[in-house]
Amino acid sequence: MVPSVEIYDPRLGTWMSGEPMKQSRGYSATAVVGESIYVIGGLTDNKEVLDTIERYREGEGWEITQSNSVGKRTFASAIVFRTD
């Protein structure tokens, strides 16, 4: 369970470190909506299941949102579909 973030650039085929999240977590779900990245739920170092959501916005960094996930979640996945 870590706060670290790794970013893959498919154009360069390389990985780089990103700004760490506010809270260490593992086994969380992640989704991209518009210009934001959301990390939902997960598990802490103490094996506590989280009900928080962190959001990343370019230029603003990570913040724990006012929204909570629907109950405590771990070992989850998130998919966002866009219809145009």
Rank of each mutant, 00 (worst) to 15 (best):
M1C: 15
V2M: 14
V2Y: 15
V2Q: 15
P3D: 15
S4K: 10
S4Y: 09
P10Y: 09
R11G: 09
R11E: 14
R11H: 10
T14R: 12
S17H: 10
G18C: 09
Q23R: 12
S24E: 14
S24M: 11
S24F: 05
R25A: 05
T30P: 03
A31Q: 04
V33H: 11
G34P: 06
S36G: 04
I37L: 15
Y38L: 12
V39M: 02
I40A: 04
I40G: 01
G41W: 01
G42W: 01
T44D: 08
T44N: 05
D45A: 14
D45E: 15
N46T: 15
N46Q: 15
E48W: 06
E48Q: 13
L50Y: 02
D51Y: 05
D51S: 12
E54H: 01
R55F: 01
R57E: 12
G59P: 02
G59Q: 02
G59E: 05
W62D: 00
E63L: 01
T65H: 04
T65P: 03
S67W: 03
N68I: 00
V70Q: 11
K72R: 15
R73S: 05
F75A: 10
F75N: 13
S77L: 09
A78P: 03
A78D: 05
I79C: 11
V80T: 14
V80R: 10
F81Y: 12
T83C: 11
D84R: 12
D84M: 08
D84G: 12
